[in-house]
Design a protein around this nucleic acid. Structure first.
Lengths: 125, 125
DNA sequence: ATACTTGTTGGAGTTAACTCCATGTCAAAT
DNA sequence: ATTTGACATGGAGTTAACTCCAACAAGTAT
């Protein structure tokens, strides 16, 4: 399957402008037809979805760019890419640790609020 | 204990400019001394550390501002604040779900790379 | 043939969250 | 008495990640 920028935009949930922006930033460059229009493939799709995963875990575009460059350079860079992924996994695990800690803290904070509200309730009744 | 902006800056790991910026955004307003200089207290400290937790979990300053406003309005708003915290907990749990999913996906991706590299190794030897 | 739709580019504008800077004030050190 | 140092304010500048727009191109619908 192949998609125009409009279709692709729908498919992945990004605006056409954003797609063109990503292209300018060298994250993804689709082929063009005889009319110079962008033609996205299913491969572009899975690649973009991966990019979105990276974004979802707060990887800045600059860093994604590095990965993209390696990818477009082909097979010979797979070791490097793997290294990058391992690094990113570390980062994500760290992120999860922080998140868990914050959830914990929030839970305690909420429990406190609850206690206080109950006490006040007690006084009023 | 009370701190000048410089000391406080060290204490919480934000630049003085950032602290003044947060003040402009109404996240935190310390008292002033007779000389109009900011005087931060330990209460300001724990409040700011809480702000940083919220930031760490990607709460935008605008939303933190809402919470700050309620806080500075005093006890009568604690119900509202609690509601806000509950909402934020939902958001954080959602964040964790996404993160776990992405870690999973990344693990599979890494496993794939590993397999491919092994296969190539196999061919070469 | 003309209008409409969807695309193209280059470049300007926007928002969030800082960050930097010029100019000025005051207390402390020399 | 002057220099130094930390701080004050107002406002400009920066970076990331879009978002919008004007002007043009080409295929499609009426």
């Amino acid at each position: 399957m192949s998609y125009s920028i409009g279709e692709f935009s729908q498919l992945v949930g990004l605006s056409a402008d954003t797609l063109r922006y990503y292209e300018k930033e060298n994250l993804i460059y689709p082929n063009r037809d005889k009319n110079n229009r962008r033609v996205y493939t299913d491969e572009d799709k899975s690649w973009l979805l991966f990019i979105l995963r990276l974004k979802e875990t707060a990887m800045p575009i600059k860093q994604i760019k590095t990965y993209a460059r390696l990818r477009y350079e082909g097979d010979k860079t797979s070791q490097e890419r793997m290294h990058l992924l391992l690094e990113h996994r570390k980062f994500m695990l760290e992120q999860r640790r922080t998140l868990d800690e914050n959830i914990d803290h929030l839970n305690r904070k909420i429990a406190n609020y609850q206690k206080q509200l109950n006490e006040r309730q007690g006084i009023q009744s």
